[in-house]
Simulated assay, not measured.
Amino acid sequence: MPDTDLLRASRDGDQFHYHWAARQALKLLLPDADLTAIAVEGVSPDDTQGEAGEDVVDIAEYYGATGLHEANRVVYRQLKHSTVQATEEWTVSGLSKTVKGFAEKFRQIRQESPGLEEKVTFEFLSNRPVRESVLRAIEALAAGGEPGKYAHEVKYLRQYADFSDDVAGEAAFFSRLEVDATAPGLLRLEGLFRLDLTGLLPGAPDVQPCC
């Protein structure tokens, strides 16, 4: 791929992060919003003492309070946007760093404050599809059952998460791992952001979402 295409893809990824974060931040302005705080490229200062796994957290959302301990719900989200591979499926190897980092964060929470992990969700969000066998393998691990025909994906997901003999911890983690492959592309996201903004600012021009 030419260098200009690589640069464009990188910039598109950055713009996707910015617009996603900005669109979520608009929800803070709603009078009945449960969303209380958003941390970008990391977590709230009132989170865990350890920083394990936080390098994969692009956005952390806190509902009901500004920190992990007091919040009703917390979502740790990683965003992945692709311009040139938008139709190419994520395979299990593509989720390796995400699963590893999220699992480290999950264990950090359990170690410091057992029980708090029950109000936490880890989400991998992308505009690229995810292979069906990967989704089914995550479901199998969450259920703590046999991998069945998804043994290949289960094997590698287990290696990435690295819970060793902690079967209960492994199942608890994967039950809190969500994969959303329905994110809009950058142009669509920009249009949705402008549309949301229109609804909040009196006198703003009518804008229709693109694409």
Rank of each mutant, 00 (worst) to 15 (best):
K80D: 03
L68K: 00
T83L: 11
G203I: 06
G115P: 00
E61H: 04
I59F: 13
F16D: 06
R188E: 15
D58E: 14
L7G: 03
E112T: 01
V130K: 05
L189T: 06
S133F: 07
T48I: 02
L192C: 00
A183T: 05
F173G: 00
H19Q: 06
Y63S: 12
T91H: 12
C210I: 13
F163T: 02
E153Y: 04
R158G: 15
W90L: 14
A172V: 01
S93G: 10
Q78E: 11
V74I: 07
T36C: 04
A143R: 14
L195Y: 07
A168D: 14
Y62F: 11
N127A: 00
A21G: 09
A172D: 14
R176P: 12
P205N: 02
S96F: 06
A71K: 05
G67V: 06
P31D: 06
A22K: 12
D5G: 05
L26K: 10
D12N: 15
E178D: 10
E146W: 07
N127D: 00
D32Q: 15
A39M: 11
A181D: 11
E104Q: 13
L195T: 11
V43C: 08
L68M: 04
G185T: 00
G101P: 03
D47C: 14
E153N: 07
C211W: 14
D166C: 02
N127P: 06
Q111N: 02
S10L: 10
S175W: 05
Y150D: 15
V167H: 05
D206Y: 08
D55F: 04
V179M: 00
A9H: 08
M1W: 04
R107P: 00
Y63D: 02
T66K: 14
Q159T: 11
S126M: 10
N127M: 06
S133K: 15
E190Y: 10
V99Y: 07
Y62W: 08
R8P: 04
L201V: 15
D58M: 07
A181M: 04
Q49W: 09
R136T: 08
D3F: 10
A60E: 08
V130C: 07
Q15A: 10
R176S: 12
Y62Q: 13
S44G: 10
D12T: 12
N127K: 01
A22P: 01
E61M: 14
G13R: 06
T121Y: 11
Q208E: 15
L26I: 08
R136V: 08
G185R: 04
S82Y: 09
L201H: 08
Q159W: 01
V74Y: 05
R73L: 02
C210D: 03
A22G: 05
R107F: 04
E170D: 11
L157Y: 07
V56D: 11
V130I: 03
E70H: 09
L177K: 01
V154N: 03
E89I: 02
G13Y: 06
V167L: 02
Q85Y: 15
Y150R: 14
H19S: 09
A142E: 09
H69I: 10
L187E: 08
D32H: 05
G169I: 03
G145Y: 08
P184T: 09
L35C: 13
K27P: 03
V74P: 05
P184Y: 07
G145Q: 09
Q85H: 14
P205T: 04
V56K: 12
T36G: 02
K119E: 02
E123I: 03
A25I: 03
R176Y: 02
G115E: 07
P147G: 05
G191A: 07
Q15W: 03
E123W: 09
